[in-house]
């Protein structure tokens, strides 16, 4: 028996919004420690890794490890039927071929349930090694989204250059060149507005704008985003999900032809 309950459907809606542009379907691996999802996008350029800890749920029970392959378009249709403040419960029997998603209004006067067919997805799992990153940048998630959106107008690629002074995002194309520099913030009143750079050595890497923009669909989940970079390894873009877990996106760098 698997049962997981969250106080607010809005969290699950935001999580789905953060992955459904990259993935058509995905396997949710459930165990007593929580729910994990790891999947590459269709082009195998990026990897999404979602971790939801069992202690972050209002109720969590998972008697046997369970892999639930879900069509994310179908799940989005179901979640559209929930009000943001509804409770949401996911339930499945062991070895079941369906999952039930139930919404309850705050006053318990409206209860709706949706049964969704599960899929058998033959998904590969990739082992992600620990990396000592050269640069780790923490910055406001909305600022990162804004930069990715703005620079995508100028080029398919964005160059991220990080030094101890700051981080520079550049794009160059037919229109010309765009550069956006962010300095590390001195003192800020609000932690969520800070730009913090931890640098071992400077790094310059090039990434495809369309993937960065897809990652920023996670912006509503978190006030801050963390970018971890190292030469010749994938960029890690991480959004914390408060009291519940995190979503990490890995993006392979572009290399010169």
């Amino acid at each position: 028996m698997f049962e997981a309950r969250l106080g607010q459907a809005t969290i699950l809606k935001k999580i789905l919004d953060a992955i459904k542009d990259l993935l058509n379907e995905a396997t949710f691996d459930c165990s007593d420690s929580g729910i994990q999802l790891q999947a590459m996008d269709n082009s195998h350029v990026s990897l999404v890794s979602l971790t939801l800890r069992s202690d972050g749920f209002d109720k969590f029970r998972c008697d046997r490890n369970l892999s639930m392959g879900m069509n994310l378009g179908s799940m989005a249709k179901i979640l559209k039927c929930a009000n943001n403040e509804d409770n949401v419960t996911m339930k499945a029997q062991d070895n079941a071929d369906t999952v039930t998603i139930m919404f309850e209004s705050a006053n318990q006067e409206k209860v709706s349930d949706y049964e969704m067919k599960l899929m058998n997805l033959d998904q590969e799992h990739l082992g992600i090694p620990e990396t000592d990153f050269s640069c780790v940048v923490r910055m406001p998630a909305m600022e990162f989204a804004r930069i990715c959106r703005d620079l995508a107008q100028f080029s398919e690629s964005v160059v991220i250059c990080c030094t101890k002074e700051g981080v520079k995002f550049s794009a160059s194309g037919d229109v010309g060149t765009a550069n956006i520099k962010l300095a590390q913030t001195g003192s800020v009143d609000k932690e969520e507005e800070a730009v913090i750079i931890e640098m071992q050595e400077p790094v310059t890497l090039t990434f495809a704008c369309r993937y960065l923009n897809a990652f920023t669909k996670a912006t509503p989940l978190s006030t801050q985003v963390q970018l971890s970079m190292c030469a010749d390894v994938p960029l890690v873009v991480e959004y914390a999900i408060k009291d519940l877990g995190h979503i990490r996106y890995y993006l392979a760098p572009k290399i010169e032809d």
């Binding site: 350029v45 799992h125 990739l126 082992g127 390894v233 890995y250 392979a252 760098p253 290399i255």
Partner: peptide
């Protein structure tokens, strides 16, 4: 040139 993400990580 865009590299694939699976060229960086091992399949398990």
């Amino acid at each position: 040139m865009q590299r694939g993400i699976d060229s960086f990580f091992k399949r398990i």
